[in-house]
């Protein structure tokens, strides 16, 4: 017979504690959004470099090249580097998740074998 008084007390304790819990919900789509933003940043960087080149090619005055170099060249390069880093990071995370799944499956199989051997041994 379950001690209902104790069960109620445990429920009340849990209810009190769970109210204090601060939860920052992790979005399951966060990684996908990050990967998308990496690809987007790389694409934007390439576009900026092209626009910089396009603008600079329209004039032969060196002083007019400088804004194009800064906005298009350096800005574009920075975006490509950032986007590339995010994309590689997302790829490593995905690979790691795949390895964890494989490892869990192998562990489960080994444990099933262990259980079967134990049953046979008994």
């Amino acid at each position: 017979m379950t001690d209902q008084g104790s069960a109620d007390q445990r429920y009340a304790d849990l209810q009190r504690e769970v109210e204090k819990l601060r939860i920052r919900e992790r979005s399951p789509d966060a990684e996908r959004r990050l990967r998308f933003s990496g690809v987007f940043a790389t694409g934007l960087g390439l576009l900026l470099i092209f626009l910089g080149y396009w603008g600079a090619s329209g004039t032969n005055q060196t002083y007019e090249h400088i804004p194009y170099l800064i906005s298009g060249g350096i800005g574009g390069l920075a975006l490509i580097l950032m986007g590339g880093f995010i994309t590689v990071r997302a790829w490593v995370v995905a690979m790691n998740a795949e390895l964890v799944i494989q490892s869990e499956r192998q562990t489960q199989v080994l444990e099933r074998i262990e259980a079967l051997l134990a049953e046979q041994h008994d």
Binding site: R10, Y11, L14, E17, V18, K20, L21, I23
Partner: peptide
């Protein structure tokens, strides 16, 4: 848990509350 939505709560936080 006890009527409150806890999606995304960390494992250690859940262990601490019971």
């Amino acid at each position: 848990l006890a009527g409150r939505r806890v999606n995304g709560a960390a494992p250690d936080a859940l262990a601490r509350i019971g």
